[in-house]
Design a binder for these strands. Structure first.
Lengths: 142, 142
DNA sequence: TTGCTTTTGAGATTCATTCTCAATAAATAC
DNA sequence: GTATTTATTGAGAATGAATCTCAAAAGCAA
């Protein structure tokens, strides 16, 4: 959380943006959450903590967090955008259970190299991976 | 297009649904389109062809096409759901240019095996892949 | 045909996200 | 410190894709 904050501050400064109180509250909520969250999760968490930030500000702040590399958009669930921590987390792929909605994370290393090769073939510079598959999890297979 | 239609008819019958005129018009529009399309694309294409189907019906029909395996949801672009042909198309992964929106398709075979292994490790049964990466295409790299 | 079920079109509704704009806060100049 | 300028915020309005409603139309069986 220390490093995240430093990085954020750095990023904002480089963009001539200010590390205001709402932006700080949002940062803290993001990293107090477990890895996957959506805007409502943040909003509720902040309220639960007796703080207050408007939804508008959350919506405005998320792109900053994404651009700074701290989080990234990962999936959609129930027609809401879902984000996840990026900083300090290995890339990974998602297996999403189409029955119960469970998200399973799985390794990535081996896959990454391959995909990079494919990208190179197309002269494409990857900024952000988006790898997953839908299907049935262990429990729902029966 | 022959096979697609047969498959569709088959599927509808198995669900006790009827192959009505609007449903047929939509099927034709879907497969006259090139691979990626959204609801508006279909709607416009149908109108251009001097036919008429309401947006509501398109929205209602797409899930049927997905369930039948003829198409699948692939990406979102400009906050619209995008679909793609599945039937008769190899699985592939998408490189999406975050600058110009271009979609590049790339091979898959080698990746598929790896990912399947990872899924097996989790006892997860894959139904549908969703593999891609955002970044900059050849033209936008400069 | 008649009666019954499914499907459709049109418009209303929902709901996540974005936008607007007046009020506030931060930063800088004086 | 105060005044001035600029960036940011909150509240609610607006947007727009997707879904829902319901009366009318189409399909189907007998």
């Amino acid at each position: 959380m220390k490093k995240e904050k430093a990085l954020y501050r750095e990023f904002l400064k480089s963009k001539n943006l200010k590390l205001t109180k709402p932006r700080l509250i949002i940062l803290e909520a993001v990293f107090k959450n477990n890895e996957h969250f959506n805007v409502d999760d943040l909003y509720e968490q902040i309220k639960r903590n007796h703080q207050n930030v408007s939804r508008a500000t959350i919506y405005r702040t998320i792109p900053l967090l994404v651009e700074s590399g701290l989080i990234s958009q990962s999936l959609r669930c129930e027609s809401k955008d879902i984000y996840e921590h990026t900083y300090g987390h290995e890339n990974h792929l998602h297996f999403i259970c189409s029955n119960c909605g469970k998200i399973i994370e799985s390794g990535f290393n081996e896959v990454e190299g391959l995909i990079e090769q494919l990208a190179n073939k197309e002269n494409f510079k990857i900024q952000e991976y988006n790898l997953g598959a839908r299907g049935l999890c262990k429990n729902c297979r029966e």
